[in-house]
Design a protein around this nucleic acid. Structure first.
Length: 306
DNA sequence: AAATCAGCGCGTCAGATTTT
DNA sequence: AAAATCTGACGCGCTGATTT
């Protein structure tokens, strides 16, 4: 039995008692611990071929997860968070073992824009008649601020999410002076703001209570994305806020990068699962062919023996 | 029609892993 | 060692199917 655990894969040569298999999860009693096995490749069939069967499984230790008061939550969490190598590694290892799995190269997207490694000083700052500011940073985040409140609290960032490949159309920021006013639109495209009409104010407060909410809408999806501001408005002009602003900007960049990374990770994961499914199909076919072949050979052998 | 559920994708955080 | 990247986990919202 080859067990691919969360940490690594290892071989188990032992007498393990397999409990009943329900919903794809097999409980195995190992000396010292109980593990749950989720089969990745189908369970071994009643095959005439008695070659050593290698079954790759994922295990989740049961005994370890049961209440162990001596272990702190952090340790438990750390244990749980221990990861296997990246999907690319696993896939490439698989591909080196089998022809069935095509080697996947880490593609470099040529249109990959260096995401604001250079300092993203706000490139455009707009002031409205109400005294609020909109700043569009090079990181394509919208910063909102109001005069009068010092420090970081004054600056609010609205990240403008964008796909790596520029989509047609710009993000649309809608705003209205009063509830009920016809909303005005700011088009954000390529880090620039195109203002439609005269901007008398910054975004409408759509939420009741202290926390204002804004809507950011992409014309492609048509879906409105609500943004709730947790900070109170303030000023961006305060020189002492420069440092805080820098921190905020760094955070925005980090979040944006992580957003992209998460997207990419999910894509890879999907691909990885698809690859495994393909592999299962190929192996099933191979198995079938081999069984038929063996059957034919057996027939021939039996005829000769007669 | 409304409520419930399952499945999916997203953004974020935290921590492991890899790169510099 | 520090910075960058990757990914599991969590919570959220959306959508379509099913149930009440």
């Amino acid at each position: 039995l080859t067990v691919a655990g969360k940490h690594s894969s290892f071989h188990v040569c032992l007498q393990a008692s397999l409990a009943e298999e329900s919903s794809g999860v097999t409980v195995v009693q190992l000396p010292g611990q109980t593990v749950q096995i989720q089969g990745v490749i189908q369970a071994p069939q009643a095959s005439v071929i008695q070659s050593p069967q290698v079954q790759t499984v994922q295990i989740a230790t049961v005994a370890e997860l049961e209440d162990d008061e001596s272990v702190t939550d952090t340790q438990k969490r750390r244990e749980l968070l221990s990861r296997r190598p990246s999907y690319w590694k696993i896939l490439n290892e698989l591909s080196s073992n089998s022809l069935a799995v095509p080697k996947i190269e880490e593609e470099k997207t040529e249109d990959e824009v260096p995401v604001s490694n250079s300092p993203t000083v706000p490139t455009s700052i707009y002031q409205t008649s109400s005294g609020q500011y909109i700043a569009i940073t090079q990181g394509r985040a919208i910063q909102l601020s109001s005069p009068g409140v010092p420090g970081l609290q004054g600056v609010q960032n609205l990240p403008v999410t964008s796909s790596p490949t520029p989509q047609p159309g710009a993000a649309v920021l809608q705003c209205a002076a009063q509830p009920g006013d016809s909303p005005q639109q700011l088009f954000i495209q390529g880090g620039q703001v195109l203002i439609q009409g005269t901007v008398r104010c910054i975004l409408s407060q759509t939420a009741t209570g202290d926390i204002p909410a804004y809507q950011l809408r992409s014309p492609n999806s048509g879906l409105a994305q609500s943004i709730v501001m947790a900070a109170s408005p303030g000023s961006m002009q305060n020189p002492s806020s420069q440092h805080a602003e820098e921190i905020t900007r760094k955070r925005e960049v980090r979040l944006m990068k992580n957003r992209e990374a998460a997207r990419e990770c999910r894509r890879k994961k999907k691909e990885y699962v698809k690859c495994l499914e393909n592999r299962v199909a190929v192996l099933e076919n191979q198995n079938k062919t081999l069984i038929e072949e063996l059957k034919a050979l057996k027939d021939i052998y039996c005829h000769k023996a007669e």
